[in-house]
Design a protein around this nucleic acid. Structure first.
Lengths: 240, 240
DNA sequence: AGTAGACTTCATGTCGACAAACAAAATGCA
DNA sequence: TGCATTTTGTTTGTCGACATGAAGTCTACT
């Protein structure tokens, strides 16, 4: 019923102290959900978690409430709570919002960024580039997300940054689902596109930043779409 | 220290049953925060609330966690939690995001709405119009928000609807702060603008819906800005 | 008198336990 | 044998209590 690797007691119960317990559990569970270590739809048992983290159920519960508020888990009243499913029917909405956030954050960043922002963005881009060099797909997904968050932060609009972060994390879940078919050419192209975006941003060229953001978003949407259709094609070939 | 009207025990402890307690407390507190019955910056005492709602502190706490996740309250670890302040420095970001959401939800609604959506939107518009007729400012603020949420729902993008809802509620808080100087002409104009928006939506005219949304947003932003500057002007006249 | 340090007070964070609600197994009846 | 009902079991929702950390108070010392 419960997978040993996930449910097992933490090797080093890292002695979190008063007031940090909830944040600790929240961070770990959040990562496990986004990285699909906890499969969508799988049930979450509070008692299990409380044993795993060597804590009472109370802080566990609060962490779960936070995750539920973010939409990462769904709680059925008086019944079990499960990891939220990836809603493929809403994929159109997702792409739409994602593209819009790419655009507005790029535009704002071009207008509002500071020196420090550029340094942060470049650091993340370096990490992303390294991940591509090392063909570390999981690291690519994570560092790519961090790069775009840094751009959003440079845009100085917390409402956009917030939504963008959620969208990008949801994107991480979807990409994890399909990363096995990752194309070797695309990552290189993403590195180049990121560099172009940085250049336009430094030049404070809002319109060019916007154009590049649209192109980048289209590229990513196309990539995910192709993964999904490839996936469904192989499935349908099985049934014939 | 604690205001009697807010801290007092609920007259009718409405016997909420298992599993509904948290949602009940959450809804009530949320409304009180948005309607400024709980002033920004004022401390929130868990023990007080637990007495007021005749519940243990546990469900109260979960409701507070949800509110904190939404940004409506800020919790200082090991110390008190307070109602979030209205951040006037971020007002520019707020207006920017608000305008964008007006636009995209109007566009999407024009493209995706169904008959039922139109009916719902019209109902909310009727409520808004009635509130204007009755010069009930508080009702106007609330029904106006509901009208735009209905439009967003018709747009069928939960990401936008979610962000929009939060922005509109934050707007309700700001308007409450300034509603004493509410202009008598503007509400009428809003009714007309809403009617125009509905017409464009039914005609599925995306571009016209967009134009109207921009105009509507500009109008509201201008209104809030004038309230604030009027307020600061009277304040500065005091200091001179 | 002013300041540093100990003490008191009190709200929060955490805990273990109990009770309700749901799901599934077991039982009884046609 | 098949279906309805009861019983059992498990997990969640709620409770009351304890421990911890922080703010304010009081005292003592320079």
């Amino acid at each position: 019923m419960s997978e040993a690797s996930v449910t097992a007691v933490e090797g080093n119960p890292p002695q979190v102290k008063r007031g940090e317990g909830v944040a600790y559990v929240y961070e770990i569970l959040r990562n496990e959900i986004i990285e699909l270590k906890l499969a969508p739809g799988s049930p979450i048992d509070e008692t299990d978690l409380s044993q795993r983290f060597s804590m009472s159920r109370t802080p566990i519960r609060e962490a779960l409430v936070r995750l539920a508020a973010e939409g990462l888990i769904s709680t059925l009243t008086n019944r079990t709570t499960i990891v939220s499913n990836i809603d493929f029917l809403q994929l159109g909405s997702f792409f739409d919002a994602l593209t819009l956030m790419y655009r507005v954050t790029a535009r704002l960043a071009a207008g509002n960024h500071s020196e420090a922002d550029v340094a942060a963005i470049r650091a993340h881009q370096a990490n992303f580039s390294r991940a591509v060099d090392e063909r570390d797909v999981l690291a690519m997904i994570a560092t790519n997300r961090d790069f775009h968050i840094a751009v959003a932060v440079a845009g100085r609009n917390k409402y956009y940054t917030d939504l963008f972060r959620r969208l990008l994390d949801e994107g991480r879940r979807i990409l994890r689902l399909y990363y096995h078919s990752y194309d070797d050419n695309l990552p290189r192209q993403y590195v180049v596109e990121h560099e172009d975006m940085i250049a336009a941003l430094i030049a404070r060229d809002v319109e060019e930043s916007d154009r590049l953001a649209v192109a980048h978003a289209d590229q990513i949407v196309r990539q995910i779409r192709s993964y999904i259709s490839a996936d469904s094609r192989s499935a349908s070939s099985l049934t014939l």
